[in-house]
């Protein structure tokens, strides 16, 4: 699949602060784009349930990830404790990009 765009939103947490980023894949470095593509493939992201979220746990982050490819779009909502282990690296990469973008 050819990923064109990823939207990432993080809400909740102890501080209750929202961060978000809208990434055009073409704007990412080759290294970032390559790793994110691998992780999405490995997760079979397009086939994941839309809700990967168990009961809301106090102060956990809620993540909403939307992936757009050349032929499909899929959104998954998940949380810290309910995200599968193999999704953790993707969450960290996207979260870091969102935190970096909010700099001055």
């Amino acid at each position: 699949m050819d990923v064109e765009r990823i939207k990432f939103e993080r809400t909740g947490g102890f501080a209750g602060m929202r961060i978000a980023t809208d990434l055009k894949f073409a704007d990412l470095s080759d290294e970032q784009a390559s790793r994110i593509s691998e992780l999405l493939d490995d997760l079979d992201f397009g086939e994941l349930p839309e809700e990967l979220l168990e009961e809301s746990m106090p102060d956990q982050f809620t993540y909403v990830i939307t992936v757009e490819t050349d032929d499909w779009e899929h959104t998954v909502t998940t949380g810290d404790a309910s995200a599968p282990e193999k999704m953790q690296e993707l969450l960290h990469l996207l979260d870091r990009l969102a935190r970096t973008k909010r700099k001055h």
């Binding site: 947490g13 102890f14 501080a15 102060d59 956990q60 982050f61 810290d80 404790a81 960290h92």
Partner: peptide, 10 residues
């Protein structure tokens, strides 16, 4: 985790 700016009760 890394870069985890949070604390929670699970």
């Amino acid at each position: 985790r890394q870069g985890y700016d949070n604390a929670f009760w699970d």
